[in-house]
Design a protein around this nucleic acid. Sequence first.
DNA 1: TGCAGTCTCGGCT
DNA 2: AGCCGAGACTGCA
Length: 159
Amino acid sequence: MCKPGAVTLSTGWGDIRIDVADDGVVGCTLPHLNEIPSTHFSVISAGDDAFSIYVRELLEGGNPTRPAIGQLQGTEFQKKVWAGLLAIPHGTTLSYASLAKKIGRPTAIRATASACGRNPVPLIIPCHRVVASDGGLGGFSGGLAWKRLLLGIEQSRRP
DNA sequence: TGCAGTCTCGGCT
DNA sequence: AGCCGAGACTGCA
């Protein structure tokens, strides 16, 4: 794996910070966006590590191979939810209810949503692919603008 | 549109 | 240790 520490990816939308441990990514901090940027995505500076490359390709519309994820801090329930998130294919979305059912807790919907919100590595674990059943977006750490952006990027790439 | 049901987590007492 | 409120939700009335 890459060296432990923090990696910063500077983009036209702000700096994305990625925290890396011995065994993989353990944290990812997005710049807060209040609205979708009018400018096209652009990279100002980035490392050549697997994580920076992954994030860059993802935001450029590609479907890069997910980098290794380290040991995340969380309860068993949260880890189960995150594992369920990783199973969502690129370019598709799932409702919180479907996700709850998927992990074997069909009625623990709000709890599932809370676990999504506690996801320490947005982008890597695709919590933006989870939306409300009524078509609403739900929420997203770092701002809803990110969620709309990511969904837009992924879906525009879908055949 | 409104409200009760359902489950977890974190902060307080 | 136990209680209470809040949360990125749902489904029915």
